[in-house]
């Protein structure tokens, strides 16, 4: 019984679940890969994952607040083509400008959602469509030129591959953010916005800031993607529309808001990009891959739900048993900030 309780507690943590899933795939990949895993292979995988990690992290921040953001794919498309066209001649300055474009889109989303009180799904879907069209206007066919310094900055080596360093920096920034006032309040908004408002927190300002921060991450994702593929392509961002949410789901964040971790999402994104590698060495391709990814998402959500319900039943049982002191267990349905 003790062991079952421990397992349920562990599985209730979305980040741990995501880490376990990723570990399984990594072990399978390392065992099955001809000649084992080389630094090149690992670096290539992490580099291709980095834009998805960034974009999915932004989506996660918005989801924590109980809102949705579908604009990530559009921002990635626009900033990717901007990096290959108008910004390519500006050298290093192109990078912060691309990020700024993302932030401006985030502010635009935030304005329409928070100030104008429009539904986030409709607003961000519209933003995605508009930006997808704009990207095609800016760069009708794939091509352009990415500044070599920026390519080297993201894809080069600094004792260890820089992709590893960037992932660690993102994780560190997340750990810092979640303990800031804005980070804590963002969780609170997702759990009970009204209660937070009554306690004096400027809920709208929190949401506004989160949309802007998410946009910033999408902009950075587009710039990194441009450096990784070394070209601009207006259609390249479209895959992030669903992949970001798949990463969030595998990472264990609650789509209802107020629960989850960017670390989990990062692991979810890494899992999504390692799955094709594992299926490749297993000789599996085609539709099976998508079926597999879909089933994995369902399994991830299901395990989390079962573990949470098991914990809730236990708490309920303790509460209804007389003369037993109730343990202090969070029943918020997911991970605490």
């Amino acid at each position: 019984m003790e062991r079952r309780g421990f397992v349920a507690r562990v599985l209730r943590n979305g980040t741990v679940r995501a880490a376990l899933v990723l570990a399984v795939f990594l072990i399978a990949w390392s065992v099955l890969q001809l000649g084992g895993l080389s630094v090149f292979l690992i670096n290539s995988w992490l580099l291709l994952s980095l834009p998805l990690v960034l974009a999915a992290s932004g989506v996660t921040l918005v989801i924590f607040t109980g809102e949705f953001d579908l604009s990530a794919a559009g921002v990635v498309a626009v900033t990717n083509v901007l990096m290959a066209t108008w910004l390519s001649e500006l050298g290093w300055l192109g990078l912060p400008l691309a990020v700024l474009v993302g932030a401006v889109v985030g502010l635009f989303n935030g304005f329409l959602v928070v100030v104008m009180r429009l539904p986030a799904i409709a607003v961000t879907l519209a933003t995605f469509i508009i930006l997808g069209g704009l990207a095609l206007v800016i760069l009708p066919t794939p091509g352009g030129r990415i500044d070599p310094g920026i390519i080297d900055f993201f894809t080069g080596q600094l004792v260890v591959p820089r992709s590893i360093i960037f992932l660690m920096v993102i994780a560190l920034l997340w750990l810092l953010y979640r303990n800031t006032r804005m980070g804590v309040h963002a969780y609170g908004v997702g759990q009970d916005a009204e209660a937070l408002r009554l306690s004096g927190v400027a809920v709208d300002r929190v949401k506004f800031g989160v949309f802007a921060l998410a946009g910033t991450l999408y902009g950075l994702a587009g710039a990194v993607l441009a450096a990784v593929v070394q070209t601009g392509d207006a259609t390249i961002g479209s895959s992030y529309l669903l992949a970001t949410f798949a990463a969030v789901a595998i990472g264990g964040a609650a789509f209802t808001g107020g629960s989850g971790s960017v670390l989990g999402t990062m692991l979810g994104a890494l899992t999504l990009t390692v799955i094709p590698k594992v299926l490749f060495v297993l000789g599996i391709s085609g539709w099976v891959q998508r079926v597999f990814e879909g089933m994995l998402i369902i399994a991830a959500v299901l395990v989390g739900a079962v573990a949470t319900q098991s914990e809730q039943r236990k708490v309920q049982a303790v509460k209804t048993t007389p003369k037993v002191e109730a343990p202090t267990v969070s029943v918020s349905g997911g991970e605490r900030p």
């Binding site: 001809l34 290539s44 392509d233 895959s239 891959q289």
Partner: peptide, 22 residues
């Protein structure tokens, strides 16, 4: 025969790298 299910340049890059590694 390898079919590209993830019909994105990123997916195809990953697949090409896997082919070379194999």
């Amino acid at each position: 025969t390898e079919l590209t299910d993830d019909a994105t340049p990123q997916g195809q890059i990953s697949q090409l790298q896997s082919m070379v590694a194999a």
